[in-house]
C-alpha cells in the first residue's frame, strides 16, 4: 500500500524518468513507422530524379547529389500527362459540383423536412451502401452506351459518361445529413417564426453551419476522381480522354522488356504532386473530415 502511494505521488523523480522512458519508446516507434510510410514516396521522388544509368545501378543509389530533371520532359513526351491532368480536373470539377448540390438538397430533405416515406427511403438508400459497385457498373456501362455517350465519342460525351453517374453519393448524403441533424431544431423554429423560407434557411443557416462537412465532401470527392481508374478505362474510347490513372498505367503498361523506371516514377510524381499539394494546403479539413467519416452514427 505504502509503495503504491509512493509510486503515484511520492517519488517525482522516478515518475519523471518513467515518463521520459515511455515517451522515448513511443517516439522511436513512431519514427520507425514514419520511415516505413515515407519510403515509397522517397523512392518515387529519388528515382524520378535519377539518370537512366543511376537507375540501373546495383546496389541502388540511395541519395542523389545532383538532380536530373530530364525525366519529367521525357515522361511528358511518352504520354500527354498535362492533358490527362486537365481531363481529371474537369471531370473532378463537374462531378464534385454535381455531387455537392444533389447531396445538400437530399440531406436537407432527410434531415429537416417531414414527408411520407422519409424513413423508408432513407433505409433503402443506406441498405444499398453495402452492395459492391461492380453490380452497378455492369448496367451503368450499358446505360451510358444507351445514352449515346460511347459510340463516336466526343470529348463532351466522354465527360458526360465520366461525370453524370457520379453526381450523387449515398454515403455523402448520409454523412451530411448527420451534420445537418446536429443543428438544433430551435434554429429552424426561430427562422420559421421570422418568416424564413426553407430554401433561405438551408442557404443562410444550414449550409454555413455545416460548411466543414461540405468542404470535406468536396475534397474527398475530388480526390476520388484523381484516383478513378476502372470506370474511365471502361467508358473512354480514346486514350486522350482518359484520366491521370489511366494515362499513367497505359504509358507504362509494358508487356516485356525494360521499363524506364526513372521516367515512370517522374510521371507518377507528376500525378501525385498536385494531390499532395492540395492535401498539405487543406490538411485540417481532410484529416478531420476523414476521421469523422469513419465514425458511425
Amino acid at each position: 500500500m505504502a509503495a503504491q502511494v509512493q509510486n503515484l505521488y511520492g517519488n517525482e523523480k522516478q515518475l519523471r524518468r518513467q515518463f521520459i522512458l515511455r515517451q522515448t519508446y513511443v517516439f522511436t516507434m513512431l519514427i520507425i513507422f514514419s520511415i516505413i510510410v515515407i519510403i515509397p514516396f522517397y523512392w518515387m521522388i529519388l528515382t524520378a530524379f535519377k539518370t537512366e544509368a543511376q537507375v540501373f545501378t546495383s546496389p541502388p543509389i540511395l541519395w542523389l547529389t545532383e538532380l536530373n530533371f530530364s525525366n519529367f520532359g521525357a515522361a511528358m513526351n511518352a504520354a500527354p500527362f498535362l492533358r490527362y491532368m486537365g481531363n481529371t480536373v474537369v471531370v473532378s470539377f463537374f462531378s464534385t459540383i454535381g455531387t455537392v448540390i444533389t447531396t445538400i438538397f437530399a440531406a436537407f430533405a432527410f434531415a429537416r423536412l417531414n414527408f411520407t416515406g422519409r424513413d423508408a427511403i432513407f433505409m433503402l438508400l443506406i441498405s444499398t451502401m453495402m452492395i459492391p459497385g461492380e453490380i452497378f457498373v455492369i448496367t451503368n456501362f450499358l446505360t451510358v452506351v444507351e445514352f449515346g455517350w460511347i459510340k463516336d465519342q466526343t470529348y463532351t460525351t466522354a465527360l458526360l459518361a465520366m461525370t453524370i453517374p457520379f453526381m450523387t453519393s449515398i454515403f455523402y448524403i448520409f454523412f451530411l445529413r448527420q451534420s445537418f441533424r446536429q443543428i438544433p431544431n430551435e434554429l429552424y423554429y426561430a427562422a420559421k417564426v421570422d418568416g424564413t423560407s426553407d430554401f433561405k434557411y438551408l442557404r443562410r443557416v444550414m449550409i454555413p453551419i455545416a460548411m466543414p462537412t461540405i468542404i470535406t465532401i468536396t475534397i474527398l470527392n475530388a480526390m476520388g476522381t484523381w484516383n478513378a481508374y476502372i470506370w474511365p478505362r471502361l467508358v473512354t474510347q480514346r486514350q486522350e480522354f482518359g484520366l491521370v490513372s489511366n494515362g499513367l498505367r497505359n504509358a507504362f503498361n509494358d508487356l516485356a522488356g525494360v521499363v524506364a523506371y526513372n521516367e515512370q516514377m517522374a510521371a507518377a510524381l507528376l500525378v501525385t504532386f498536385p494531390l499532395l499539394v492540395v492535401f498539405l494546403l487543406l490538411k485540417k479539413y481532410i484529416i478531420r473530415g476523414v476521421s469523422r467519416s469513419g465514425i458511425k452514427g
Partner: peptide
C-alpha cells in the same frame, strides 16, 4: 402561419445562429 402572426419567440437554448 407563424411568420404572419407578428410574434417574437425566445427559446430555452436561445437558438442563435452560431455563424
Amino acid at each position: 402561419p407563424p411568420e404572419d402572426r407578428g410574434i417574437g419567440l425566445v427559446f430555452q437554448n436561445y437558438a442563435l445562429y452560431p455563424h
